[in-house]
Structure formats: structure tokens, C-alpha cells
Design a protein around this nucleic acid. Structure first.
Lengths: 335, 335
DNA sequence: TCTTTTTACGTTATCGTTACCGTTCATTTT
DNA sequence: AAAATGAACGGTAACGATAACGTAAAAAGA
């Protein structure tokens, strides 16, 4: 095969049919493994297709079959190192199955999540994966319900609406508190991330339960953007308003990084004066000094599983609902 | 508009035509702003389309026009924080123009770049953006040449093949050396990244020239993967084999982060004993302690400009060739 | 041997849109 | 007033693949 390949060849199925001396229909059947062709014909067709370097036209195929072999992926902020890992996993799994990823990034609130989902659907993706949606339930269900397969990451939904890959943040939260208490910390504050976050709420449930189990309660709770800047502002506020604290648990690692900056600026040493726990275990977490104690979530795996689940829901009627991922406590130097 | 929207409505152009009392052709013309319809007809059609919530079928449209309103974007490693920024910029610009991004991630060498480009092309993207290609010129030109518009990021190419958005790494390299020399460093080693990197080679050219201008030369040059792990290994090697050095310049920030780890492990203090300079200015760079001195590249802008350039090349015959981005020295605490 | 089933194809119609080529009718030109 | 022009629209035929249905031959069953 030293002839230059051509992924956009103008060779049509009719050309292949002609070359193989059969009808286009037979070529279509053979190329889609639908049987109904003798071994020799199959060989002749395969040979001709290869010889002519035939590539099915995705538009024509889509027009007939209403399938695009494309998956829509919506992430809230690709700039947060958590999501590239998820994307990476999704990309791998999709690519193996011959699917491509149509990526959309929710830019803060400047463009609404709802619009982006619709844009993806309008492009006729075969299914859609939405990460950490902040849409109200009703809206989300309305947008997703009528069509196509869907999988939500870190967000619950009934099985008719979507499959789900969720992290058990309650257990994660619980482990964080247990660990801090074990280290002798009692005056713990929470940097809670965005109010509207589904995952944020379940963390809080876990915190409350585990505080209660230890006969403690949160010293303070502040909400903020899930970014380093947000964490820094929140931590600064905590340092000013809740002086006695000896630990902070952060919504995610980015927040924890911000909190570290704020502490450093205030001349407070970590972990001696204040212990710090994050969530996610983004790659930077272990590169910081002190390296960040955090609850690791298998990000790449989430992406992979989301795609697998989605492909399953695309292909079959009997739809799997999803899986739960349990975060793992990674103890480093901030506690 | 309290009727539920439907991004996949089965309303066809014929339905709209019927409702507006015209032919499908007229609807098509109006909806594509091709003129040839009176003001009132235009209004009637627009109204009907909106009323029925008509959405053009992208497959049918593509089949006729061979346009998908989709851009392929190939990045080498989405896990490197450099690329999400580029993607973010590209996504923004594409989204504004009504285009979607088809994302592909080159997983190390397990899947070849060439295949992924072809997969993108096979999906009939209207244009393709390739970041930091490591393909040999001949291969790259062969894959790109015959079709569609293309833009390369950090890689040169003749105008007939592709537009280019390149960083002037030569100047960047020069500024890094000047800065170190100014700080009194003379025994400088280079962590040079991957051998096959286009940008890596132009950095080396800049290093050589600037060393010469100062009457110096590199104490050592080691190549490595463009990752933290790669940088760590390279730095460890340098510490063992080139004992007297007082500075390291790294291929990118990830390498620099790895080098920091290696130095810390060896009990070497930064910047007192060894100064460190990175490239890119990824978000983590300023969050490290000591914060990393680096050459900032406008990543988001690169993504935006790449898309703009690509859309221009898609739309017009007379094709712009591209722009050069000059990195800016950001002095922090490692020098 | 004759009927029934199965295998291996081919025909036709269709998905929804737009390019190409007309046609009609009002307006301007001479 | 006749002819030329142009604006506003319509009819038809692809674009390329496949679903639905049809048919001829071979294989299986009676």
C-alpha cells in the first residue's frame, strides 16, 4: 500500500460495487458485517474496497441511520486539571470503539450549560456525557430526556434519564475527618466550593455525620469558586473570621492550593499550625511542598467508564444505570 | 416560548415551507442568508421556522454541502496543563462562530498521530488544528496536503499546506540565558525535552547563539519526556554527571517541576545553589514554592488565533499564513 | 420428485438539504 | 408599446448510504 491514503476519498460505495461486480447493497452489508454474502464475494468486496481505498461518507451514513459515531462531552472547566484526566480516559475508550469526542467547555456562566448541551445534540451526537452539571434537575431532565443516551458524571439522575458515574463523596468526607481527628485536630473548618455543586452537597452530608460521630462540629463553612483563587479568598476569610482553627478541608485540590497560598501569605505554617486536606488528587497535588494530603478519585477511570456505560446505553434497550467510585485517602505532608 | 425545545426535532425544511406557504428552496435560501426573498417572505419563513422549532439536519446539510461546522483538534497530551489552555481558547473561538470541536489526544506512541489525523479527516471536519506535531515533514504534508484547511501550532509548514501559530522559542531561549547570566550564573545545563520536538530544536538554536554571545557554552544537555517524571530523571542525571552546575533551563514547566523534586531529594536548595527556569507558564508554576521563573506563552490566545486563522482558511482562497507569539519572561523565585 | 426453506444477492425508495436551472411577473429602458 | 432586465420564487435532481422488500437459485425436507 504505497498509494497515498485519502481519508476523504470521493470513492463511493457504488464504485466499490462496480469494481467487485456486485450491487451497492451487498457492499454495504459486507462492510457492516450483516452477513448474507458468500465467503468469496465478501473477499472480493473487501479487496476492492481496500484497493480503491474506500471510506464511507459519514454524512450519508448519518442521514440514513441517524448515527454519527460521535459522543458529546461537556466539562465545566477544562482548565481544572481534574477534567483533562477524565477527558483523557473518555478519549481512550471512545477511540477504541471508533467513536470521536465532541468537546464542550462551560465557560463560567457566560454561556449557559443548557445551550451547549443543545448545541451538542443538534450536531447529532449519539450520546452525551455531562460532567458535574449545575443545572437544576428539572432543566437537566428536560434537556436530556427526549433523545439519545446520556451519562452524568458526579450527578445523580433516574435511570430513564441518564446513567451515572458518581463519586461517593460522603465516604470521602468521612475519611478526611477521621484522618484529621486521628492526627489530633479538633477545630476543623470547611472550604465548601460552589453552593450549587451536587458533589459539594454530599461532601457536607458526610462531614456533618462524621463530625457528629466524633462529637464535634465544623468551626466554619465558607463557599467559593472551585479554583485556586476561590480557595485563597476563602482561606483568607477563614483566617480572619475563625482564628482558632487547626485544619481546613477543601472542596478540591485547587481550593487547597489557594488555601496554602493564603496561609503562607499569613505566615501560618502547614501542617504545624493548620492541616490541609484536598479532594481529587490532581497531578500537582504531589508536586507541591508540602505535598498535599487529598482524597484521590480515579479520574481517568471515570472517563473510561462513562464512555463504556454510554456506549452500552446507546446499543441496548436494557440500560445499565452506573457505578460508584470511592475516593481513596492519600496521606502526604499537609496533615 | 414555553414549548419544550428540541435540538433533534423531526421537523424538516418541507414542514417550514408548508407552514410559510413557500417552497423548501426558498426556506433554504432565507435560512442561509442567500437573498432572493422579499422582506415579508423572509419574515414569514423566519417566524414559521421559529414557531415549529426547526433545526436543520446536519447530516443532510453535510451530504449536500460537504461541510460539518466542526473543527478537529489534535493535542499531544491533554494531561499537560499547557494544552487545556489552548483548547479552552480554541473552544471559545469556535463556539462563537457556531463550530464544534472534535478533540483527539495522542496517547504517547501507542496510537499514531497519523491515524488520529486521518480519523478526524474521515469524520469530515471542515478543518484541522494540530498541536506540536512530531510527525516527519513528509508524512505531515502528505496527510494534510490534499484536503481541508489546516493550522499547525508550534510547527512550521509552507503556506499551501497549513497556516501556523508558532512561538518564537529562539527569543525565549535567549531571554532565559540573558536573565541567568545577569543573575550571575555561568555554569548552565539544559533539560531539552524530546529530541523530535520542533520547539525543542529552536530553543537549542537560541541557547547556542546566546551562550556564544556571552562567551559561554552549555555545561550539559539531556533529553527527556516532556513530563514531570521526565524532568526529574533528567535533573537527577545532571546532578550526578555534571556536578558544578548552577542553573538548569527546562524544556517546559513540567520538566522544571520534576527538576525541583530531584533537587529537593538531593538536598540542593533552589535558587541558592541551582537556579531554575521553565517554559510555558502553566497555572501551577506560580503556585509552587519557590514559585517558578518561566517564559510565559499566551496559550489561550494561541487556541483562539488558531481557530480564527483556520476559519479564515476555510472561508477564503487567499490564505493567511499565521502569526508568531513571543514568550515573556516571568521572574519569580527560582532564579 | 416436488415442495419448502434458506442463502445470496438485487431493486427501489428514502433520509433532508441544497445546486442548478427555470419560470413568472413587475419594473425599467428605448 | 415593445423589449430587455432583474427580482422572487419553484421544480427537479442529486449528495451517498441503507432499510425494506423482492427474487432467483441452492439446499433441505417430504
Amino acid at each position: 500500500m504505497n498509494r497515498p491514503k485519502d481519508p476523504e476519498s470521493k470513492i463511493t460505495i457504488a464504485d466499490v460495487a462496480r469494481a467487485a461486480g456486485v450491487s451497492p447493497m451487498t457492499v454495504s452489508r459486507v462492510l457492516n458485517d450483516q452477513g448474507g454474502a458468500s465467503a468469496e464475494t465478501t473477499q472480493r468486496i473487501l479487496l476492492a474496497a481496500n484497493e480503491l481505498n474506500y471510506r464511507p461518507n459519514p454524512f450519508a451514513r448519518g442521514l440514513r441511520s441517524d448515527r454519527s459515531r460521535t459522543i458529546g462531552l461537556l466539562v465545566p472547566d477544562i482548565t481544572n486539571p481534574f477534567f483533562p484526566e477524565v477527558i483523557r480516559g473518555a478519549e481512550d475508550a471512545a477511540s477504541v470503539a471508533g467513536y470521536n469526542l465532541l468537546l464542550s467547555n462551560v465557560v463560567e456562566n457566560s454561556k449557559r450549560e443548557e445551550e451547549l448541551i443543545e448545541a451538542l445534540l443538534r450536531h447529532r451526537v449519539d450520546g452525551i456525557i455531562v460532567c458535574s452539571s449545575r443545572l437544576p434537575d428539572a432543566t437537566l431532565h428536560k434537556v436530556l430526556a427526549p433523545h439519545r443516551a446520556a451519562v452524568l458524571i458526579n450527578r445523580e439522575a433516574p435511570n430513564e434519564i441518564a446513567g451515572t458515574i458518581v463519586t461517593d463523596y460522603e465516604i470521602g468526607a468521612s475519611r478526611a475527618i477521621d484522618h484529621l481527628v486521628e492526627r489530633g485536630r479538633r477545630r476543623i473548618a470547611i472550604i465548601a466550593g460552589p453552593r450549587s455543586s451536587f458533589g459539594g452537597k454530599s461532601r457536607l452530608v458526610g462531614f456533618r455525620k462524621t463530625f457528629a460521630a466524633h462529637g464535634l462540629e465544623a468551626q466554619a463553612i465558607v463557599y467559593c469558586d472551585p479554583t485556586a483563587a476561590g480557595g485563597q479568598a476563602a482561606a483568607a476569610q477563614l483566617l480572619a473570621e475563625a482564628p482558632g482553627i487547626d485544619a481546613m478541608i477543601c472542596y478540591n485540590d485547587l481550593n487547597a492550593i489557594g488555601a496554602m497560598k493564603a496561609c503562607r501569605a499569613a505566615g501560618i505554617s502547614i501542617p504545624e499550625q493548620i492541616a490541609l486536606v484536598g479532594f481529587d488528587d490532581i497531578p500537582t497535588a504531589e508536586l507541591l511542598s508540602p505535598a498535599l494530603t487529598t482524597l484521590r478519585v480515579q479520574k481517568r477511570e471515570m472517563g473510561e467508564e462513562a464512555v463504556r456505560l454510554l456506549l452500552n446505553r446507546i446499543a441496548t434497550k436494557k440500560r445499565q444505570h452506573g457505578i460508584v467510585i470511592v475516593p481513596e485517602l492519600i496521606i502526604r505532608e499537609t496533615t
